[in-house]
Amino acid sequence: MNVPEGLYYTEDHEWLKVENGVGTTGITDFAQEELGDIVFVELPEVGDEFQQHDNFGVIESVKAVSDLYLPVSGEITETNEKLLDQPELVNDEPYQGGWIVKIKLSDEGELDELMNTEEYQEFLEEEA
């Protein structure tokens, strides 16, 4: 299971990378593996504002549906439109081409509540 260094993680199996106050988020390798072949991602609109843990979209595989939750509060600045035609990117490159949205963080303090790589790895082991 790929759990890259330098990212934040949530118990809902989302990852977050923060650069200059802008976060990029997607689902983890573990989550994509659990869901199976991703066939659809429902994206929010750019400009939508969300609170931490808000449901901002939906991700679907052939036989499962999962809500997407934002790791932090903020405003959507960009969505990965490529996923509309190539949802399989989430399976193939969950941490790169399979990113889902970018958010302008409204409270960097929230980052403290998220897990780091080690903590998430431990969390996965406990879950199993």
Binding site: G36, F40, P87
Partner: peptide, 9 residues
């Protein structure tokens, strides 16, 4: 075995 992912995508 049929490719259900292809059918849905």
């Amino acid at each position: 075995k049929l490719d259900e992912a292809k059918a849905a995508r």
